[in-house]
Design a binder for these strands. Sequence first.
RNA 1: CGGGGUGUGGCGCAGUUUGGUAGCGCGCCUGCUUUGGGAGCAGGAAGCCGAAGGUUCGAAUCCUUUCACCCCGACCA
Length: 504
Amino acid sequence: MAGKGNDKRGGKITTREQDYPQWYQDIIREGDLAEPAKVVKGCMVIKPHGYAVWEKIQRDLDGRFKATGHKNAYFPLLVPQSFITKEAEHVEGFAPELAVVTHAGGQKLEEPYVVRPTSETIIGHFFAKWIDSHRDLPMLVNQWANVMRWELRTRMFLRTTEFLWQEGHTAHANHAEAKEEVRRMLDTYGEFCEEILAMPVVRGVKTESEKFAGAVQSQCIEALMQDGKALQAGTSHDLGQNFGRAFDVRFQNEGGELEYVWQTSWGVSTRLIGGLIMTHSDDDGLILPPRVAPIHAVIVPIFKNDEQRAAVMEAAVRIKTALQRVDIANDDSPYRDFLAVEVDDRDMRPGAKYYEWERKGVPMRIELGPRDLEKGQVCVKMRLGTAAGEGKEFLPEEEFISGVRTRLRTFQDALLERARARLADQTVTLDDWEQFKSTFKGDKSQFAWCHWDGTAETEAKIKEETKVTIRCIPLPGQGPAAEDGTCIFSGKPSKGRVLMAKAY
RNA sequence: CGGGGUGUGGCGCAGUUUGGUAGCGCGCCUGCUUUGGGAGCAGGAAGCCGAAGGUUCGAAUCCUUUCACCCCGACCA
């Protein structure tokens, strides 16, 4: 029964209604995803179960990057301090949050190194060495790495001092091509979030004040969390020729003239795991979509004596073996996604195991005891009642095995549908400032499409008064159709609605 | 950086006001009984109380210094 596990043994999960941020922390702890490092400020330890989720994210995204022509590379963790200062806006944006290495090998360094907060600068340096001709373009590289930003306030997965991410860096011969790349990768992220994380997103463009330090334009995907706040889940930047100029990345075009390259960069981080948690999980613990679940199914054997134990374990292993041959990847996927199955034969009461695996977000549980063996059936329980199944189901073993791929894929779809329904439900169109203020009163938040006069002043004032920020200016098809109107705050003319919400 | 808080077995805490040589719950180990929604009993291991200095016959407790981490605000994936 849902909700019964709280206030009993095995760790407490605060309800979302009581205290949403505390619930979030509890889910991470009880789901065994991560813990604060404590001994290193603002950092976290990603535990095996959490890291396995990241590995699944990596595997899928990496395939998508390669399918769009990118190759992986790796650049140094340390960046000469002077590199950071070469692009004016970039320094200004990142200077306050840099960690700097001043000593090494027992000596003071001639020039300090900064621990990369992002790698545009050092990659710019190498692009300059590698690119001479239009024939070297486009240069399409991606790096899986850790970066460090000395943030003042941290939250596990959402904002930690050190975090894991992927940063794509590309150089092109003209702006149009670079812009295409920016949008291509944004769409790659959007599709990934929906297909794999079952997390719907809104695609848009950042305002001037929210864009990446050093970019001409930043595009983003924004997801809606259960508490109504927005999570920037990924970004794709048009860097124009800014870094090309700063690092002298020039190529000879077809006409023989020297020209600066047009660059892009794009990234998603372990923050996606935070988004995953706040999109699907409930008061009983983590809920993982099958496509990112490190364990898809747990088989809990039930027996009273050694004889029963032997018979049940034999059946458990048989079922596990059959399930491990099932692949839930898309038909056109570049990789196979075979089911990961665990037989939990620890000496514990079955009930204790059920609660534990529910907290860890395993999508499907199979209970197997003497009664099932007699009837040739299995007892199946999904982590959440959906179209994929509700309550405990008793199915003939063969039928269960042959239907399991559909079952898990239906479960995945149901999670996406549920998230989409919540997004639709918590998105409003507002035209009245008083209504706006009451919508965002106190800690309240949701997605609101509002007219904005396009000025940074208005944007800043809205933020100051309500903590609400402009999440993005929607790309075509991502919000209400463009229409003339008046700014919700200033009453001045507006050409279209923008997405507003409080953000993580 | 401003405000608040906390450092005591693995985890969560009590003990500090009123100094007397460390305790509780959970977890862990061993054994027996259990096992279809969080097991019971019995036995056991584990901490010189964040660090340094001081007061005292005696300090987790009082004084000084210091370090670290957490939470709340301003910056950010």
